[in-house]
Design a protein around this nucleic acid. Sequence first.
DNA 1: TATCATCTTTACGTTAACGTAAACTTGTTT
DNA 2: AAACAAGTTTACGTTAACGTAAAGATGATA
Lengths: 135, 135
Amino acid sequence: MSKTYSISELASEFDVTTRSIRFYEDQELLHPTRRGQTRIYSSKDRVRLKLTLRGKRLGFSLAEIRELFELWDETRSGSEKQLHLMLSKINERKAALEQQMKDITMVQLELESAEIRCRQALEELNEKPPLTTTR
Amino acid sequence: MSKTYSISELASEFDVTTRSIRFYEDQELLHPTRRGQTRIYSSKDRVRLKLTLRGKRLGFSLAEIRELFELWDETRSGSEKQLHLMLSKINERKAALEQQMKDITMVQLELESAEIRCRQALEELNEKPPLTTTR
DNA sequence: TATCATCTTTACGTTAACGTAAACTTGTTT
DNA sequence: AAACAAGTTTACGTTAACGTAAAGATGATA
């Protein structure tokens, strides 16, 4: 038997609420088994949770994330058509991520120049201190 | 006088609805002037709209974007305290963006390997075609 | 002058992603 | 046995970011 996790273990490891984890199950992103009425999470579930949170950080909706999971599952034993569909989805995502990279780079540049302007303003404040605080 | 824009000009240029643009004004992200009751957007407003949309693509909330705008405006004639606050905000954002970069890189790698696996599966389908379609 | 196209305000509706509360079961500790 | 911790279901509440009428003002055009 490989390792399993309780809901609160995963919650604290990834710093999310149990409510969220149950919600992700409701949205069919996770499929834990049960012992009695208690949820048991496999390491596959753990990976899925990790991927889910990463996807969220990237701005994907839960529905999109689910779509990707389902596509991938279907692809593992998929027909040629399924495989081509998966490939096109993959390329959609790749294009979106490239756009995001560009956006981030732009904003980083803007932040850089903003920082420089801030530091210059600070220097000027120190070179020409207000009269009330001089001497 | 420098160039001005109507609401629908900006809407079509950036592919957003006029509803959104008015909403951004409601959230104090834009501050167009008026001619009569009609909104007139300056090129500064245009830049702000562009930055707003870019920020959104990066997962910033409108409130966060507004906060950045306000900080920047206050910083242009700011006290030392304001400048330091701005610097720390800038560094917060930089750290968040670096994390996003890492996330994107991870997902890109995963997409790459997924693509490879897809292509291999396709090759295998062609090498070993199902009996029903052979000859 | 009538009809548009474009703009406006007001206001209720919608969706996603949970938060929060209530009431209950199950296993463990005192 | 009583209390406590951790889990459960059910269900209503909340926030952000708009969508979607409805009803009216304004200037240009047929």
